[in-house]
Simulated assay, not measured.
Amino acid sequence: MASSGRTRLAAAGAAALVLLGLAVAARPAGAEPPAEMEPPTGVPPRTPIASTTVPRPPTAWAQVSCATGAVTAHEVGRDELGLPTLRIRGWIQPCAGAQAERSDGFAVIRYFPGSGMRSRHIEPYIAPPAPTGFDFRVDAPAGDGIHGPVRALCVAYSFDGRAACVGLDTGADGTLVVTDVPADDPRVLVRIGVEHVYATNPTCGTCV
Protein backbone atom coordinates (compact mmCIF):
# COMPACT_ATOMS: atom_id res chain seq x y z
CA MET A 1 0.00 0.00 0.00
CA ALA A 2 2.83 2.42 0.87
CA SER A 3 4.48 1.66 -2.47
CA SER A 4 1.21 2.37 -4.30
CA GLY A 5 0.88 5.77 -2.48
CA ARG A 6 4.40 6.78 -3.42
CA THR A 7 3.70 5.87 -7.03
CA ARG A 8 0.59 8.10 -7.16
CA LEU A 9 2.48 11.06 -5.60
CA ALA A 10 5.29 10.70 -8.11
CA ALA A 11 2.81 10.64 -11.00
CA ALA A 12 1.05 13.76 -9.71
CA GLY A 13 4.40 15.57 -9.38
CA ALA A 14 5.40 14.66 -12.91
CA ALA A 15 2.09 15.94 -14.28
CA ALA A 16 2.53 19.26 -12.47
CA LEU A 17 6.02 19.69 -13.96
CA VAL A 18 4.67 19.03 -17.46
CA LEU A 19 1.93 21.68 -17.04
CA LEU A 20 4.48 24.20 -15.73
CA GLY A 21 6.72 23.58 -18.71
CA LEU A 22 3.81 24.14 -21.10
CA ALA A 23 2.94 27.43 -19.42
CA VAL A 24 6.53 28.71 -19.67
CA ALA A 25 6.81 27.62 -23.30
CA ALA A 26 3.57 29.43 -24.17
CA ARG A 27 5.19 32.83 -23.36
CA PRO A 28 7.81 33.90 -25.92
CA ALA A 29 11.31 34.53 -24.67
CA GLY A 30 11.78 38.13 -23.57
CA ALA A 31 8.05 38.82 -23.31
CA GLU A 32 6.92 41.14 -20.53
CA PRO A 33 4.80 39.72 -17.74
CA PRO A 34 1.06 40.35 -18.05
CA ALA A 35 -0.07 43.91 -17.37
CA GLU A 36 -2.21 44.70 -14.35
CA MET A 37 -5.90 44.29 -14.88
CA GLU A 38 -7.88 47.38 -15.82
CA PRO A 39 -10.25 48.63 -13.09
CA PRO A 40 -13.81 47.32 -13.32
CA THR A 41 -16.30 49.32 -15.34
CA GLY A 42 -17.61 52.30 -13.41
CA VAL A 43 -14.57 52.62 -11.12
CA PRO A 44 -12.47 55.65 -12.09
CA PRO A 45 -8.70 55.11 -12.36
CA ARG A 46 -6.47 56.81 -9.83
CA THR A 47 -5.09 60.13 -11.04
CA PRO A 48 -2.47 62.49 -9.59
CA ILE A 49 -3.91 65.24 -7.43
CA ALA A 50 -3.16 68.70 -8.82
CA SER A 51 -4.19 72.03 -7.34
CA THR A 52 -5.87 73.00 -10.62
CA THR A 53 -8.18 70.00 -10.56
CA VAL A 54 -9.18 69.92 -6.90
CA PRO A 55 -12.11 72.12 -5.84
CA ARG A 56 -10.94 74.78 -3.41
CA PRO A 57 -13.03 76.09 -0.51
CA PRO A 58 -14.05 79.76 -0.76
CA THR A 59 -11.49 80.84 1.85
CA ALA A 60 -8.54 79.12 0.16
CA TRP A 61 -6.08 81.33 -1.68
CA ALA A 62 -2.74 80.22 -3.11
CA GLN A 63 -0.72 83.44 -2.74
CA VAL A 64 2.61 84.76 -3.99
CA SER A 65 5.32 86.08 -1.70
CA CYS A 66 5.98 89.36 -3.50
CA ALA A 67 4.44 91.70 -6.07
CA THR A 68 4.45 95.36 -7.08
CA GLY A 69 1.64 97.43 -8.53
CA ALA A 70 -0.18 100.73 -8.70
CA VAL A 71 -3.65 102.22 -8.84
CA THR A 72 -3.23 104.52 -11.82
CA ALA A 73 -6.75 105.97 -12.12
CA HIS A 74 -10.09 106.07 -10.34
CA GLU A 75 -13.60 107.28 -11.05
CA VAL A 76 -16.03 108.44 -8.39
CA GLY A 77 -19.74 108.84 -9.04
CA ARG A 78 -23.20 108.01 -7.78
CA ASP A 79 -25.61 105.26 -8.71
CA GLU A 80 -29.34 105.54 -9.44
CA LEU A 81 -30.04 105.58 -5.69
CA GLY A 82 -27.60 108.38 -5.08
CA LEU A 83 -25.05 106.15 -3.35
CA PRO A 84 -21.33 106.63 -4.03
CA THR A 85 -19.65 104.50 -6.69
CA LEU A 86 -15.97 103.86 -7.28
CA ARG A 87 -13.98 102.35 -10.11
CA ILE A 88 -10.23 101.73 -9.89
CA ARG A 89 -7.71 100.91 -12.62
CA GLY A 90 -4.08 99.91 -12.49
CA TRP A 91 -1.69 96.98 -12.65
CA ILE A 92 -0.02 94.34 -10.48
CA GLN A 93 3.13 92.35 -11.23
CA PRO A 94 4.48 89.36 -9.29
CA CYS A 95 8.17 89.61 -8.44
CA ALA A 96 10.63 87.43 -10.32
CA GLY A 97 10.88 84.06 -8.60
CA ALA A 98 7.59 84.48 -6.74
CA GLN A 99 6.14 81.38 -8.49
CA ALA A 100 3.03 83.18 -9.70
CA GLU A 101 2.15 80.18 -11.85
CA ARG A 102 1.24 78.36 -8.63
CA SER A 103 -0.97 81.19 -7.39
CA ASP A 104 -4.71 81.60 -7.82
CA GLY A 105 -4.17 85.31 -8.45
CA PHE A 106 -4.70 88.60 -6.61
CA ALA A 107 -7.55 90.23 -4.74
CA VAL A 108 -8.96 93.57 -3.59
CA ILE A 109 -9.20 94.11 0.15
CA ARG A 110 -11.56 96.69 1.66
CA TYR A 111 -10.55 98.08 5.04
CA PHE A 112 -13.18 99.12 7.59
CA PRO A 113 -12.57 100.53 11.06
CA GLY A 114 -10.81 97.70 12.89
CA SER A 115 -11.12 94.99 10.21
CA GLY A 116 -10.61 94.18 6.54
CA MET A 117 -12.53 92.09 4.00
CA ARG A 118 -11.02 90.28 1.04
CA SER A 119 -13.02 90.32 -2.20
CA ARG A 120 -15.16 87.29 -2.98
CA HIS A 121 -13.30 86.80 -6.29
CA ILE A 122 -9.63 86.01 -6.86
CA GLU A 123 -8.42 87.53 -10.12
CA PRO A 124 -5.82 85.50 -12.06
CA TYR A 125 -2.46 86.81 -13.20
CA ILE A 126 -2.72 86.91 -17.00
CA ALA A 127 0.86 86.17 -18.10
CA PRO A 128 3.26 86.25 -15.14
CA PRO A 129 5.77 87.63 -14.58
CA ALA A 130 4.43 90.36 -16.91
CA PRO A 131 2.13 92.99 -15.34
CA THR A 132 -1.60 92.24 -15.17
CA GLY A 133 -3.93 95.20 -15.67
CA PHE A 134 -7.17 95.56 -13.74
CA ASP A 135 -10.30 97.67 -13.98
CA PHE A 136 -12.67 97.05 -11.07
CA ARG A 137 -15.90 98.55 -9.87
CA VAL A 138 -15.76 98.46 -6.09
CA ASP A 139 -18.92 97.20 -4.39
CA ALA A 140 -20.38 99.54 -1.70
CA PRO A 141 -17.34 101.84 -1.37
CA ALA A 142 -19.12 103.95 1.25
CA GLY A 143 -19.72 100.89 3.46
CA ASP A 144 -22.00 97.87 3.51
CA GLY A 145 -24.09 98.85 6.53
CA ILE A 146 -22.48 96.11 8.63
CA HIS A 147 -18.77 96.82 9.00
CA GLY A 148 -18.88 100.60 8.83
CA PRO A 149 -17.37 102.94 6.21
CA VAL A 150 -14.60 101.77 3.89
CA ARG A 151 -11.48 103.66 4.93
CA ALA A 152 -9.02 102.18 2.43
CA LEU A 153 -8.64 99.73 -0.44
CA CYS A 154 -5.63 97.67 -1.46
CA VAL A 155 -4.83 95.47 -4.44
CA ALA A 156 -3.24 92.55 -2.63
CA TYR A 157 -1.13 89.52 -3.57
CA SER A 158 -1.64 87.94 -0.13
CA PHE A 159 -3.60 88.65 3.03
CA ASP A 160 -0.77 90.80 4.37
CA GLY A 161 0.89 91.62 1.03
CA ARG A 162 -0.35 94.88 -0.48
CA ALA A 163 0.87 95.99 -3.92
CA ALA A 164 -1.03 99.30 -4.06
CA CYS A 165 -3.46 101.10 -1.75
CA VAL A 166 -5.79 104.09 -1.74
CA GLY A 167 -7.45 105.82 1.17
CA LEU A 168 -11.14 106.78 1.11
CA ASP A 169 -12.59 109.80 2.87
CA THR A 170 -15.91 111.62 2.61
CA GLY A 171 -15.93 115.19 1.39
CA ALA A 172 -18.13 117.99 2.71
CA ASP A 173 -20.71 117.29 0.00
CA GLY A 174 -20.77 113.55 0.73
CA THR A 175 -18.65 112.51 -2.27
CA LEU A 176 -15.75 110.08 -1.97
CA VAL A 177 -12.25 111.51 -1.83
CA VAL A 178 -9.65 109.01 -3.06
CA THR A 179 -5.93 109.43 -2.34
CA ASP A 180 -2.89 107.17 -2.69
CA VAL A 181 -1.65 105.82 0.64
CA PRO A 182 1.37 103.65 1.48
CA ALA A 183 1.04 99.91 1.95
CA ASP A 184 1.72 100.31 5.66
CA ASP A 185 -0.90 102.99 6.28
CA PRO A 186 -2.42 102.48 9.76
CA ARG A 187 -5.86 101.98 8.21
CA VAL A 188 -4.76 98.73 6.53
CA LEU A 189 -2.94 97.19 9.50
CA VAL A 190 -5.94 95.19 10.70
CA ARG A 191 -7.11 91.59 10.68
CA ILE A 192 -8.50 90.39 7.34
CA GLY A 193 -11.59 88.26 6.75
CA VAL A 194 -13.07 86.83 3.57
CA GLU A 195 -16.30 88.00 2.01
CA HIS A 196 -18.81 85.18 1.65
CA VAL A 197 -18.60 83.68 -1.81
CA TYR A 198 -22.38 83.95 -2.32
CA ALA A 199 -22.74 87.53 -1.11
CA THR A 200 -22.97 88.92 -4.64
CA ASN A 201 -24.43 92.32 -5.42
CA PRO A 202 -27.34 91.45 -7.75
CA THR A 203 -26.76 94.65 -9.71
CA CYS A 204 -23.02 94.14 -10.10
CA GLY A 205 -21.99 90.52 -10.42
CA THR A 206 -18.44 91.49 -11.37
CA CYS A 207 -17.85 93.92 -8.49
CA VAL A 208 -15.00 93.31 -6.08
Rank of each mutant, 00 (worst) to 15 (best):
61 W>C: 06
68 T>G: 03
51 S>Y: 08
99 Q>K: 11
74 H>T: 01
80 E>Y: 00
52 T>G: 03
63 Q>R: 10
83 L>D: 14
89 R>Y: 01
71 V>D: 14
76 V>A: 10
50 A>W: 14
95 C>Q: 02
79 D>A: 12
58 P>C: 13
57 P>A: 13
79 D>G: 12
77 G>R: 05
52 T>V: 05
63 Q>I: 04
53 T>M: 00
71 V>G: 08
56 R>K: 13
96 A>C: 04
51 S>A: 08
59 T>I: 08
85 T>E: 15
89 R>F: 07
98 A>C: 09
49 I>W: 02
96 A>I: 15
62 A>E: 10
66 C>W: 09
57 P>Q: 09
90 G>Y: 02
91 W>E: 08
73 A>Y: 00
49 I>H: 04
65 S>N: 03
70 A>W: 02
85 T>N: 15
67 A>R: 04
95 C>F: 05
97 G>W: 00
81 L>D: 15
59 T>E: 10
52 T>D: 00
88 I>Y: 11
50 A>T: 15
58 P>G: 13
99 Q>W: 03
48 P>N: 01
76 V>Y: 10
49 I>Q: 02
65 S>Y: 07
55 P>N: 07
49 I>P: 04
74 H>R: 01
76 V>D: 10
49 I>E: 00
83 L>K: 13
86 L>N: 06
79 D>Q: 06
96 A>N: 12
73 A>S: 12
81 L>Y: 10
77 G>N: 11
92 I>R: 14
82 G>L: 03
81 L>H: 15
67 A>I: 10
49 I>V: 14
